[in-house]
Computed example of a mutant assay.
Amino acid sequence: MGNTKNYDNDLKSKLSHLRLHPAYLPHIGLSYNEARAKVLIIAESHYLPKRHNNKFLVIDWYKNPKSFYESIGNDKGWFNTREVVKTYQNSKTLDKGHGIFRNLEIAYQEIYPEIKLFDECVYLNYFQRPSEVEGETINIHTIDSKVALENLMVINEVLKPNKIIFVSSKAYDNFISNVSKELKDQLPYVGSVPHPSASSWWNRKSKKYGLKGEAVTGKQKFQRIMMPKIEI
């Protein structure tokens, strides 16, 4: 996967969190370095199967990972970002949780039919721990916001994207609430679109997604951002 090993070494050297939880290393597309739009796509959070609902402590995840991993047994694949994307890429059927990947990929192929998005992009979840309940949104703690922002800043430093797109309003709102002007100035363009599979606004028009008063869908806004060298 190109320079993934070098990227991984840099990321883990700068972030103790990723040394403790290497499953949270971002997916890096095979062709990321040559991509037309070197983009970071940021979703919300992973989750664990129902049998673990509300059975782990947030503090254990961040401060006592050994206890956490002992409690979940063999289920750590549920929050391995690269394995989740790989499973989607290799699956012949679409699992419920993979709709986000499929809808993003369809939108990108309408612009560039010859390219698969996840061969070119970097993908991660903003919040750096699983949510408490399978398939549900995460309950945000102060430490979640802190670690998420630290992680994003280091990923930006190491991978040097030219665009960052949030595909989760909850993650984007948390980012905006916590990032300082000094840190935001270190980032490239940062935008957001509605969730590609969980929000009806992905396929519904709104003036807030368009330019100069035009109403477009969340999907069309995503496509506009992905196009190089145009007004975004």
Rank of each mutant, 00 (worst) to 15 (best):
P26Q: 01
I28R: 05
I28L: 08
Y32W: 07
N33S: 12
E34W: 03
E34S: 10
A35L: 06
A35R: 11
R36H: 11
K38A: 00
K38V: 00
K38H: 00
V39S: 09
V39G: 09
L40C: 09
I42Y: 05
I42W: 04
E44L: 06
S45W: 00
Y47I: 00
L48Y: 04
L48I: 04
K50W: 03
K50S: 10
K55I: 05
F56W: 14
F56C: 08
L57Y: 06
L57K: 14
I59S: 14
D60V: 00
D60R: 00
W61L: 03
W61M: 04
Y62Q: 04
K63P: 13
K63Q: 14
N64M: 10
P65M: 13
K66Q: 13
K66L: 15
F68I: 04
F68E: 02
Y69Q: 10
Y69A: 08
I72W: 01
I72Q: 03
N74A: 11
K76H: 05
G77H: 11
F79I: 13
T81M: 08
R82P: 12
R82K: 10
R82C: 12
R82L: 10
V85S: 05
V85D: 05
V85P: 06
V85F: 02
K86V: 07
T87M: 03
Y88T: 03
Y88K: 02
Q89W: 04
S91F: 06
S91G: 09
S91W: 03
T93F: 05
L94R: 07
D95L: 08
D95M: 05
D95N: 12
K96I: 10
G97I: 01
I100V: 12
F101I: 07
F101C: 11
R102E: 15
N103K: 04
N103A: 08
L104C: 12
I106C: 14
A107S: 13
Y108S: 07
E110T: 07
E110P: 07
Y112C: 11
Y112P: 12
P113D: 05
L117A: 06
D119I: 08
E120S: 14
E120F: 12
C121E: 07
C121A: 14
V122C: 14
Y123D: 05
L124H: 08
N125Q: 12
N125V: 02
Y126K: 01
Y126T: 04
Y126H: 01
F127V: 04
F127N: 00
F127P: 09
Q128C: 13
R129I: 06
S131I: 06
E136D: 09
I138R: 01
N139F: 11
I140Q: 14
I140E: 14
I140S: 14
H141Y: 12
T142F: 12
I143T: 15
I143V: 15
D144I: 06
S145K: 09
K146S: 15
L149E: 03
E150A: 03
N151G: 02
L152Q: 03
M153S: 04
I155R: 06
N156K: 01
E157Y: 03
L159F: 06
L159W: 07
K160E: 13
P161E: 09
P161L: 04
I164R: 10
